[in-house]
Design a protein around this nucleic acid. Sequence first.
DNA 1: GTGTTTGCAAAGTGTTTGCAATTTA
DNA 2: TAAATTGCAAACACTTTGCAAACAC
Lengths: 135, 135
Amino acid sequence: MRPYSQIIEQLRAAGLRPTRQRLALAKLLFENAPRHVTAEVLHVEAQAASMPVSLATVYNTLHQFTEAGLLKEIVIDPQRSHFDTTISDHGHFYFEETGHLQDIPSGEATLTQMPVLPEGTKVKSVDVVVRVFNN
Amino acid sequence: MRPYSQIIEQLRAAGLRPTRQRLALAKLLFENAPRHVTAEVLHVEAQAASMPVSLATVYNTLHQFTEAGLLKEIVIDPQRSHFDTTISDHGHFYFEETGHLQDIPSGEATLTQMPVLPEGTKVKSVDVVVRVFNN
DNA sequence: GTGTTTGCAAAGTGTTTGCAATTTA
DNA sequence: TAAATTGCAAACACTTTGCAAACAC
């Protein structure tokens, strides 16, 4: 769990004012970190916690936090976007039946080698997804 | 390039009649394999090749081909679905700026080990995406 | 006070669906 | 002829946007 003051600091550093809405969402995200959320889930949680934030603001905030380096967007589901409080490169298990997402412990999903990159490109991230189903 | 008769065979095996539309799309897909397409791109190509197919049918067909094991769906872009004519597990380079997709040569993107799976689950696929940008 | 942020509702994008007309076997 | 397939338009789910009101500094 990340110290709260650090969040405010990072928001400021990114030029984001620590508004009531952003702090509410940061609280939900980082006091329960590490975790994965969709916009909808976070929106519902905010209502439930009596810290209502409009869905549009949830979307905006998730993207702003991602830009600020507080979150990482995980592309795993063609239907909806997922965001992860753990920003370092790491793999995920994805339960297709439930839409649930789980981190793969660090070191358990690394490549044997970095592939030869196409001419003139640099790596932004290496994403590993192990899709699993219950049996 | 996959022999054409084999496609018809696989369609029949999957219970799919080899209609004009499916054959047109199969031609575009497999005569230029290996390749990656989105529904929109394939739709435009069909028009251009004077083999018009409605967009709804393109979507249906891509999914039917995927179910039949002729294509693999690649989740890489929150905006749109991509399909790949290469169905074996293999990694991809994704050019975020252009939305372009490129296979990583087989063997260059394997994991050092298969991570310990969550209790009671089996692997459906292991997807590796290296997101790159031009520098 | 000034510029930023929010919330709403409307618009947008990619995708799916209902159904009559058409095609395949 | 019976069952599958197509194409259209409408419906859908998720996300983004325009803009006036509210807020942060």
